[in-house]
Structure formats: C-alpha cells, structure tokens
Amino acid sequence: MAAAAAAGAGPEMVRGQVFDVGPRYTNLSYIGEGAYGMVCSAYDNVNKVRVAIKKISPFEHQTYCQRTLREIKILLRFRHENIIGINDIIRAPTIEQMKDVYIVQDLMETDLYKLLKTQHLSNDHICYFLYQILRGLKYIHSANVLHRDLKPSNLLLNTTCDLKICDFGLARVADPDHDHTGFLTEYVATRWYRAPEIMLNSKGYTKSIDIWSVGCILAEMLSNRPIFPGKHYLDQLNHILGILGSPSQEDLNCIINLKARNYLLSLPHKNKVPWNRLFPNADSKALDLLDKMLTFNPHKRIEVEQALAHPYLEQYYDPSDEPIAEAPFKFDMELDDLPKEKLKELIFEETARFQPGYRS
C-alpha cells in the first residue's frame, strides 16, 4: 500500500510507478496490472468513496492506442447498470505532455475469474450472474457493438453480487458484411471463450460470437473449470467437437473457408456428449439454455433477447427493466489503419471533457 500523499506533496508512487492523480484522489492501494497499465484503488475526496484507477501508458504502440481509444469512446457513450462506466479521466493539459491516461471507475471487490478459483456457486448465484451478463449484453448488442472478449476476468463483482462487464478494448461495431482481413492475426481474445466460426472463417462476425462466450462462462460457473481449455488453435476446435459432436452437413455448409471445411470433413465422426453427463448436478433449465448458447452453427445460436426470456431466468426476466441503447454506435473511421500519432490526438480530444474549465 502506498503511503497517503500529504496535501501538495506531488504524485504518489505505487510499486515504483508514478500515479499522478492528486489532489482529488489519494490513499492509493495496488490492485493489479494488465498488459499496459496498473490498477489501484484510491480515495475520492470529492465523492467520499474509494474508486478504481487504471493507469494506461499506450502511446508507444499502435495496438494499445487503438484499444484505449475504443474503450474510452464506447464506455463514455454507454450507460447501463451492468456495464462499468467511466467516472473521470485524468491526463496532462497538453498533448505533448500526455504520456499516461488515468481512467477512474467504480471500485468492484472482485471478478468472476477470482471468485470461481475459490468458491463453488449455488444455482441461485449462477442464475443471477447469468441474468446480469445477458442484461448488459442486450444493451451492448442493441448499440450494434460486439464485445468480443467476454470471459470471467472481464466480469466485475461486488459483495452485493452486482455484476458489471468491463474491458471493451477489443470491441467492434457489428459488421457481418465487412471482410476484416487479418482478423485472426489481430484477434487476441482469450482462445477458450472463442466461437468456432472465428477459427473457421475470417469473413465478418456477428453478435452470436458473444453468446458463445457467455455459454462458455455459464459452463464454467457450473463446474469451476473452463469447458474448452484448448492449448492452441486446432486443439481448441477438437475440444469443442469432442463435446458438441461432429457438425451436420448443414452446419458445414455455413463454413465459407474450404480449407477449414475440408479439415472438419477429414475428422472421424464424434457423438455429442449429453450435458447432464458433463454437469450431473446442474439445473435442467440451465443445461437447456447452455445447449442453445453453445450451438456450433452461429445462425442457430440463441440471441440475447431470447436467452433473457428463457425459463431458467424467469424469476428475473423483465423486458421493461432491460434497457437498450438510445442509438446504434458508430465509429467515424476504422481505427485499425491509423498511425499511433493520430490515435493519440483522438484520445486527447475524447478525454477533453474531463479537463478543468472544459467548454463543449
């Protein structure tokens, strides 16, 4: 834990890192770190609560700039109880001085990944967590956004079992017609939660990839272990087919990539493993919904509104309290091709509203 900075004593240090967030945020305490930044909790002297502050230093890398800009653009436009918001952003007053960006968010005690390492969940908890994931996802999908990296560590939890989806750095506007060349190379989302079509096709992607990830998360809540822990690309596919069985001819016809289709045709026939054999203690309604989410063919996979209306979630289902976005989200430009200098300018502009004396 960093010592509390005395008023006016300059930035606090946390594990050798400068955290320049005073005077409003003090009493910093280390939480963890990701690929390009550290997260601390801090005391907000204005709202009198502890908050989470993520320090991001992305400006050396085009990919990190892209992810940072995506996350900020999306989260500043989203407003939903099951999606983490941005409360404040701290950065230098000029673009030349801006080396880091500090993002202030609600402090959540833990995440689903940490929880599943230590606790076996009751059916009631599984049901409530799944409902909140789908409630947040309904809003995301209504904005025409794909999260693309749903996994237990991106689901934040607090002691009252509130759940918030975080990390929109890989999110995209849904565009089933656009052929994202190089899709697989830039697709760094965790393999275990990846839909089979991501490994088999490169053309376009749809909201059904997020539903697949939610199915993987439900299976993990039922058993405290990942359902498809593939060691590499082909191993991942083999794990999936080992449980779902061989795809039907109709399902194979959806695979545009001939090499991928021929690979699947070359494999020995596998039978589907019954879900109640894998999860003998699970609620039968939970397994019915799991089956509809972990469907090989993305066109037959359940959609988020149908999933919310499934009998497993009937005690929570309330369409009048499951809000959607006001308007579909649009990125003005494809960020993939922009140089990091341009992305830095866009991050600077996007964060201006939090600067003292800002006038829109």
Rank of each mutant, 00 (worst) to 15 (best):
H239L: 14
P23M: 01
D111M: 01
H61N: 14
L308N: 00
L134H: 01
L156F: 09
V104Y: 04
P280M: 11
N123A: 12
V21L: 12
V145N: 02
W192Y: 07
P280W: 11
Y205V: 09
I86E: 01
L265N: 08
D332N: 13
P356H: 13
E220S: 03
S320R: 10
A2V: 08
S320K: 07
I83Q: 02
R225N: 07
N45Y: 14
K340P: 06
A4W: 10
Q355R: 02
L308W: 07
L200Y: 07
E33G: 12
M38D: 09
P229I: 05
D106K: 09
K231H: 00
Q105K: 14
L343W: 05
L265W: 01
V145R: 03
D336F: 04
E345M: 06
I211A: 10
G16V: 15
T206Q: 09
H269D: 11
G136S: 05
R15Y: 02
A282C: 08
I86P: 09
L107R: 03
L184K: 06
Y358P: 08
P323C: 02
N297S: 09
V188W: 09
N257W: 05
L267P: 06
I84A: 01
S153N: 11
G242A: 10
L287M: 15
L265G: 03
V173R: 10
E197T: 01
T181V: 10
Q17D: 12
V101C: 11
V49S: 11
G136D: 00
I103C: 06
E71A: 15
R24Y: 01
Y113H: 03
M221R: 10
Y139E: 08
L265H: 03
R194G: 08
G245F: 05
S153L: 08
K270G: 08
K300E: 07
C40Y: 14
L150D: 06
T190W: 06
D100V: 14
N87L: 09
I217W: 05
V304E: 11
I103F: 14
Q119L: 13
H125G: 08
P328K: 12
L115D: 03
L170Q: 13
A92H: 10
L287R: 06
Y25C: 00
P328F: 07
A52V: 14
A7I: 13
F348Y: 13
L137E: 07
K55N: 15
L112W: 00
D291A: 10
S142E: 09
I103N: 13
N271F: 08
T295C: 07
I256S: 06
T160C: 10
L146T: 06
T26P: 13
K117F: 10
I133P: 01
G10T: 06
L218F: 09
C65S: 15
E33V: 12
R194D: 05
I256N: 13
N271V: 12
A309S: 14
P319E: 10
K285Q: 12
N201L: 06
M108N: 01
V188A: 06
D332Q: 05
R79D: 02
Y358A: 09
M13D: 03
I56N: 15
L170A: 10
R301M: 00
S246E: 07
E250Q: 03
I84N: 15
H120D: 05
A352T: 13
K272I: 15
P23K: 00
E305P: 01
T118M: 10
Q17S: 08
E109W: 04
R24I: 02
L69I: 03
N271A: 04
L170Y: 01
Q17E: 08
E349Y: 05
I165E: 06
Q105N: 15
L252V: 03
T351S: 15
V46T: 11
S223M: 10
L155D: 06
L146S: 04
D124N: 14
F59H: 13
F354Q: 07
H269E: 10
K344D: 09
A5S: 13
L287W: 07
R67A: 11
T118I: 11
D337A: 12
N154T: 13
D111K: 01
L258N: 01
P229W: 02
D235C: 09
Q132F: 02
P311M: 00
D336V: 15
E186I: 02
E250T: 08
K117T: 09
F331A: 01
I240K: 05
K99G: 08
L146D: 03
E349N: 08
Y316G: 00
I217G: 01
V101M: 15
L150Y: 03
I324F: 14
K207Q: 10
F331R: 02
